[in-house]
């Protein structure tokens, strides 16, 4: 695990992104790239899934893609 990682995959970080604008799972994964967090692909998927289940964000379809967002 690199000590220099500057991006942390946390519930608070995800919440802040989803308050700002609706995002797809792919959008979120781009924000928490493995090379920046030091997590493996599998860890990233598992942690992000747990966070999204806890946050239980609103969902809407934009351009036929499911987007998550949180009302402020």
């Amino acid at each position: 695990t690199p000590s220099s990682s500057d991006v942390h995959l946390t519930e608070e970080a995800v919440r802040r992104y989803l308050i700002r604008k609706p995002m797809t799972t792919k959008d979120l994964l781009k924000k928490f790239q493995t090379k920046r967090t030091g997590l493996s692909s599998e860890q990233t998927v598992n942690v992000l899934a747990q966070i999204l289940k806890r946050l239980n964000p609103e969902r809407k379809s934009i351009a036929d893609k499911m987007h998550f967002y949180i009302k402020q």
């Binding site: 799972t25 994964l29 692909s41 990233t44 998927v45 992000l48 899934a49 999204l52 289940k53």
Partner: peptide, 20 residues
């Protein structure tokens, strides 16, 4: 790579499928 990102997104979508 973008293909790895696609795989991760697919895995995450699948993980959330029951939930969604």
């Amino acid at each position: 790579s973008s293909s790895e990102a696609d795989e991760m997104a697919a895995a995450l979508d699948a993980e959330l499928n029951d939930f969604i």
